[in-house]
Design a binder for these strands. Structure first.
Lengths: 96, 96
DNA sequence: TTGACATGCAAGCAATTGCTTGCCTATAAA
DNA sequence: TTTATAGGCAAGCAATTGCTTGCATGTCAA
């Protein structure tokens, strides 16, 4: 686990909207962008645009937390837990 | 562990300079600002100013990861591990 | 007291973040 | 083919980040 990978991982987790997306993907995998839009709200905002959610997903993808598969015109997202396990083994475990 | 506390924690860890400070405080506690300055380098920069390190320490303090005690004119920092354990119990543990 | 040391405070500034809006493309259904 | 659906691309913009520099404050030593 390189420092850059740790950066991307912790940065991805440092946002409540993104953690909520992770939670929802943990409950049910293979959700589309539209499904994830429903219920994604930033603090203070009434709703959140599709593009905003898409950008959050991009951050999660770069961290390796979300894997994407294409099915026709829809983009399905599923959670990937190995970055968390890797970070725990490579960094957190040494401290705790 | 509130969402805001998780935000502050993950944000604090999402920087290699701050993780390095954490590592160094794990090796030896109660280091002053000046001690932590020596060896703290940002990527691309030759050295890092005292104020920059001080601001990084502020972020770590807000996350609860660093506790400060005063000894005369020096400010001693020591690592606090409970935020990591709390995050693991409140959030990471549910996923892993 | 005088001077050196450890730190705080605050303004400034380039770069990044986090969102928005508008338009474009590709797939599926009618 | 038309029409609606799922998503992509990119410009724009206010707010935040991550540093810097300059000056002020408090503490110890001589």
């Amino acid at each position: 686990m390189t420092p850059d990978e740790l950066d991307a991982l912790f940065k991805a987790l440092a946002d409540p909207t993104r953690r909520r997306i992770v939670d929802r993907l943990a409950e049910r995998p293979d959700q589309s962008l539209f499904e994830l839009c429903a219920g994604a709200v930033a603090k203070g905002q009434p709703v959140m645009s599709r593009q905003a959610v898409s950008q959050h997903l991009e951050v999660l993808e770069k961290a390796g937390l979300v894997q994407v598969t294409r099915a026709g015109r829809t983009k399905l997202h599923r959670l990937e837990l190995w970055p968390l396990r890797a970070a725990q083994k490579a960094w957190l475990g040494r401290l705790l």
